[in-house]
Design a protein around this nucleic acid. Structure first.
Lengths: 234, 234
DNA sequence: GAGTACGAAATCGTATACGAAAACTATGGT
DNA sequence: ACCATAGTTTTCGTATACGATTTCGTACTC
């Protein structure tokens, strides 16, 4: 997120470097779910000792990106259907709130930018480009919640997105129809914001936008006989 | 939270012990906001080395209980008005959601227990016992959200409460009228749950319950000329 | 007398080292 | 051929050690 990479490395602790390095590898998919994170190995790769690496990994654990078991080690955490449900449900709530809180601060330029992004997303649907679609999707939503005045909520939203990042484009692949609906809902959201709708309505719409993705996934999972967790009403 | 103290200490890592020890001291007030957490000193007190202590402190930092500055050290984080707003707003959202998700799972016994607690809270108002009042308040709300089927949301709620724990009973003291309103709202919440109201209504009520506390505090703060952060609509 | 510069003490950040636990492998028995 | 067991290897958990950075106190200068 905030990473000026090599520059100003002197003022950045090694623990911080390790954190950024491992995190980006997880989020960008270089380390995929289940990948075994061996402290000594990572330490050597990064040219630091194990202590800062360990610290970095524990931080990532706190964010849910890594699973750390005592005396066993760390692995990049995958998302099983239950976890997916928990994460999406939580994200639906905090993202809805973040969007509602942001709405009054979203200007015309922001809306225009979001529209442009959404138009590109439509193109991706034609050319079937899931990777790009997913990145644009994140861009779109960033516009919606980046002005959120409450940093705690914003942080929770970012964590949720990071958590989902390892599933990159899977929704698009698993639930083809959903992507089309999604861009339509984006447009509807923008209109709600433009028209100065109540925060409450915006929150509901933003929530439903995500819940719908979850529901589509669950339906698909049920059809494919994947284990679905106990249903919880939203 | 889950701490069987001395028993089974062998299976618990020192880092874990340190985490639990420092956390409880912060939450119970032994270490008050601003207290300087010197790694070496804590390590000696606990009879471990600095490495696990450092790890514990960083975990607490991730939860917002501790502020850690590079090359300077760790202090128990206080809550200034802005932070208080952020925390309460976030809590209002996640707690509202947690309560709504729990509601269908709350049984008669739970409601009865909550009523008993609330009755005790009324007594505390008469005898002016803020400490006890605050503890009972937590008990009351625990009944409401402890059945939340989404552990991620539940965890966020717990973090919020911990974060507020250092302000123990301050609301009661600062905004006297609020405590009376609070117990009334508790009763109203229970009735909503008993009557099987929609999750949406329960969520709204739970949210407003907390927002009202925040608003009361902000009004008080404004009257006393405390610095109030930019107002954000909820 | 106040402000600045220098030095000592305290504290942090990280490397290294070693004991402990788990995972793996090979060997022997049924 | 398969399972159990003992030994080996890997990897973690934590103690200790030391260089780096900050803070505090003191002395010196204007």
């Amino acid at each position: 997120m905030t990473d000026t990479a090599s520059a100003a490395a002197a003022t950045v602790s090694k623990s911080e470097q390790a954190y950024a390095a491992v995190k980006s590898r997880i989020v960008d998919g270089s380390y995929s779910p289940g990948y075994r994170l061996v402290l000594a190995k990572i330490a050597e790769d990064l040219g630091v000792s194990v202590v800062p690496v360990r610290e970095a990994i524990r931080r990532l654990e706190a964010e849910g990106l890594v699973k750390f078991e005592r005396n066993i080690g760390a692995t990049v955490s995958g998302i099983d259907p239950t976890e997916y449900l928990y994460t999406m449900q939580t994200l639906s709530i905090v993202e809805g709130a973040a969007t509602a809180l942001s709405a009054p601060l979203i200007g015309e330029a922001d809306v225009a930018r979001a529209r442009a992004v959404n138009a590109e997303m439509r193109e991706c649907l034609q050319h079937f480009d899931p990777v790009r679609f997913t990145r644009l999707n994140q861009d779109f939503h960033s516009v919606l919640f980046e002005h959120c005045p409450n940093p705690h909520i914003l942080d929770l939203v970012h964590r949720g997105w990071n958590r989902l990042a390892s599933l990159r484009s899977s929704t698009f692949r698993f639930v083809p129809g959903r992507a089309h609906e999604s861009v339509d809902e984006h447009e509807a959201l923008l209109q709600l914001i433009e028209s100065g709708s109540s925060p409450d309505d915006i929150e509901k719409a933003a929530r439903r936008h995500r819940s719908a993705t979850l529901d589509a996934y669950l339906a698909q999972a049920a059809a494919n006989d994947l284990p679905t967790p106990q249903t919880t009403q939203q």
